[in-house]
Design a protein around this nucleic acid. Structure first.
Length: 113
DNA sequence: TGCTTGACAGAAG
DNA sequence: CCTTCTGCCAAGC
């Protein structure tokens, strides 16, 4: 049996969205995680894009520390320069190339739950 | 129904 | 480092 179905039912999509928001809300201050990690922990390893889409289209995501979510390269979201400012104010360090120092600030979902 | 888009990931040039 | 391509999958047109 497969680990996950081929496509999401509306109910699966709803669950996924809740898991994403739930995980994001648990990211510790001064830490960051990636879309891929969140998607994988939610049970849909190949839906990393859906994570970003959910955060962008879900009203209320502003309440969450969604600025602590970056891609696996430590790059911040395109068109959202403010994200970097928010992270810097939390103590997150950036490499000279403008990317988050993942080695120091990467947080994996579920490590402290 | 079919093609395009994107807050991604990974590889290639 | 940057850009571009492929694979991925839901949403929009």
């Amino acid at each position: 049996m497969k680990d996950y179905p081929d496509k999401m039912t509306p109910e699966q999509a709803r669950m996924f969205g809740e898991d994403v928001l739930n995980i994001v809300s648990q990211i510790p201050r001064g830490k960051v995680t990636t879309y891929g990690h969140i998607a994988a922990w939610a049970g849909w390893p190949s839906h990393s894009r859906m994570v970003g889409r959910t955060l962008r289209y879900t009203p209320g995501a502003e309440e969450l520390p969604c600025h602590r979510v970056v891609n696996i390269a430590g790059r911040t979201a395109p068109g959202w320069s403010r994200q970097r400012i928010l992270l810097e104010e939390e103590g997150v360090t950036f490499k000279p190339n403008g990317h988050v120092d993942m080695d120091k600030h990467l947080w994996e979902p579920g490590v402290s739950e």
